[in-house]
Design a protein around this nucleic acid. Sequence first.
RNA 1: GCCGGGGUGGCGGAAUGGUAGACGCGGUGGUCUCAAACACCAUUGGGGUCAAACCCGUGCGGGUUCGAGUCCCGCCCCCGGCACCA
Length: 927
Amino acid sequence: MADRYEPSSFESKWQKKWADADLFVTREEEGRPKFYGMDFFPYPSGAGLSVGHCRNYVPTDVICRMKMMQGYNVLHPMGFDAFGLPAENEAIKRQIHPSAMIDQYAANYKRQMDLIGISYDWSRSFKSSDPSYYKWTQWVFEILYKRGLAYRKLAAVNWDPVDKTVLADEEIVAGRAERSGAIVEKKWIPQWFFKITDYAQRLIDDLDTVDWPDGIKAQQRNWIGRSEGVQFRMRVSFEGDPQPIEAPADTSALELNQAAEAAGFEVVTKERELSFEVFTTRIDTIFGMTFCVLAPEHAIVDQIATRVDAIHGENIRSYQAEAKMLSDTDRQATTREKTGVFTGAFAVNPASGERVPIWIADYVLATYGTGAIMAVPGHDVRDFEFARKFELDVLQVIAPSGSAFQAESAVGFRPTEQRQDAAPTLRRDAGATAELPFEAKDGILVNSGEYSGQTVKDAQQGLGEWIEALGIGERKIQYRLRDWLISRQRYWGCPIPVIHAAEGELQLVPDRDLPVYLPDVANYEPAGDGSSPLAHIPDFVNVTDRDGRLGKRETDTMGGFACSSWYFLRFTDPHDEEHAWKREIADYWMPVDCYVGGAEHAVMHLLYARFWTKVLHDEGLIAVTEPFQRLENQGQVLGQTPYRKPEPGEQLGLGEDGILISFDEAKKLPKDQVLWRWSRMSKSKGNVVTPDEVKKQYGADALRLYLLFVAPFNADVEWSNEGTQGTSRFLSRIFRLVADLQPIYEKDWKGLIGFEEADEPAKKLRRLTHQTIQRATEDIERFQFNTYVSWLMKFVNGVYDLQGSVKQPSRAYALAASEAIESLILLLAPGSPHSADELWSQIGRKGFTYLEAWPTFDPSLATEDTVTIAVQVNGKLRDTIEMPAQVNQEQALAASKASAKVQAHVEGKTIRKEIYIPGKLVNIVAS
RNA sequence: GCCGGGGUGGCGGAAUGGUAGACGCGGUGGUCUCAAACACCAUUGGGGUCAAACCCGUGCGGGUUCGAGUCCCGCCCCCGGCACCA
């Protein structure tokens, strides 16, 4: 019998036995509860699996294995997110077809996952590029289309000049393409979108129903970006137009015109009247509006340009041209000074009746709200910067609450007379006391007509109602979320099942003709003109439409996130050729009970999958409205990466302080020339540690256990192979312990063991066993795998200690030891399944631990029969005393006061108070 | 700037308001060995002492409490996300 952990002697043996027995094929047995545990759909990269991936897969495996042993039907699938840019780019580089390449890579991933003993049900596996899968991705696209949730429009999109494709907002980081690192350009192309904005509110609301990390929920709420405010219309007024008249609070627009006419002013006819809408979350500051700003792309700007004098018109056009040239990155750089020009036109503030100049400036985004704002420089930092730069009026209309600011004296920055051109002088009024801009909301309105003196909250309510009554606007909820751009002008993706028929009519490909196969061609590199490679394949493009006429296929493919938005449903019923899934089967397994992956997908995959799930629910195809009940994010595993000190003037990588070198170079350089840095494992950094190499040196179980033990599950880890030695040593200690106890092991202990005749060591051993069962189980459930492992270590240490103290083991002790051995092996099984099965067979048990019942604990056995009571004097620990578990307050206090150490500290003092926490602590307060 | 998560020994990290530092790594001393490695045993927050007693200790400053790593208020620092979103 082995008394140490020798992984090479048994790990592959057990892996073979598991495979031969189809051990991990999903069971769907009557009367068992279900558990659906899943990892994020990986893209199988050529670099293969790193220990970082394993940090994702091992914990999920642990919880799934435990659930299996606890009697659940467990669904634990794995598949591959095969479509997408990374695969296609690499395939082009390697001059190999992406399909063949992905097959190789996926096979390698599977091999590595098997190597570390992950319990995936491979019979359910698929790749998103399998026609039998993407057929149904297309089918879901058609559902979206029919529900009005998929549409095509001309859009300025994020164009990646390196990958030669369009990207989603989410794929851009700081103005650069996340994948290629290229600076994103603007390009106008007809694009397909999914109308995720229709679901914005539900996507916010239902976050309350799922058990996800707070950070991810917050990121999603942030990304959706709900704002409550008021949207209202403002009239444009030109030089020479009649002065607007004062509008009483309850005047409608019609009445306003009638009044103007009566007063002898020219009434602007409907055709000549221009207006635009603004959205604001601070309607309470409307009296502080001193100018308006339109995005340069705003539709009304061209019309204004034709109506103002030539100089202003020219200013507008040249600014528009400049804005068009600027990339979004340059435009949105926060450090950039504000730019803009006065249009020569004015807008009429509906609250004050005053005319304010209209400017165009690129700090106002065309894509948010109405693309136009009322500018309140006294209470908005961006408007303030703009006002200072162009010397525009700044007016204070909110005073900090509690300040001595009087409504009458509230003036802020304000010119002395109404001006109609763009060069006012700035003057600070004596009455202004607050530091401007004052953006806080706990304030009182000043300088705001009849609203002066109201709180911000009241004024928002009152002015909102007034705007609505006036009929020029309404209270509105605005979201930052944009529709999901799915078009990709690339080959390696799921074709969009649409035909462009005669007269530009769009037709869906009928269900019976799905899937639209991705043609198998040799050349699929992007043309570089924004068209898809598919557009250059006549056999693919030319089709007959529904009515037998000639039509052309849509040649865009869907971005990869479409494929990963429903794969969890396909796993529930992966082999059905007639349906994407059968509802009763999907309803049995869904939702995913535990979904595990990296936090980097917080606003992409996780939002899209939630959206599709809701649509499919609305379509009546599934019961759930949320796909993932519980979400957990593992921490990253960082690899050590060598850099050398840069030569003077040498170009450094983004965020780096040295020049990346290889490990070989690092060895050659003198030690003080090498800078070691920790970074995410990647092929390009050359710092990937594979499970293959760690397994070879230390064994799969030692690796698994170390991954669990090294840090809390969601914390980042700086990887070192040496750490694995610790868990390897621990496994050896288990093997030795089991070998030591083997002589007294009784297979039938269960029917014989009883508490009555137990002696002291037996009682202690059982207590230790049952405490460990309780804690290990709870810790796995709570994703505290590091403490799960440490409880097992503590257990083993404790049993060794007892062993050392027992000279002549009693029968009761032998039975308790038998229970301890079996419990230990079974508790170890999810973490180190190979060793567990090996030990199981060594003690003469047949079969697999995977099919054994998870140990349960008996609370009465887990409780101590003596307790250690901490005795404090004035809150400081002075002594500890052993008492029977049933000790009462009186006894505990008496014993405490009898302690010599306690007496030394209360001597000469009066006892003021005595605190007793049952079974735990006594605190004597004396002075 | 806004949102989220964190600051505990030499290191990774444990601690339902109740004995801070579990468990492991590393270190030190020892056993085994011709020797080394492995393994095993002991010890290991700082100060103090022959040993103890005792004192100090969870980023900083206050507070609540018999008692605070944990709760409250105000700061500092680190990590992640978003960022001219009106």
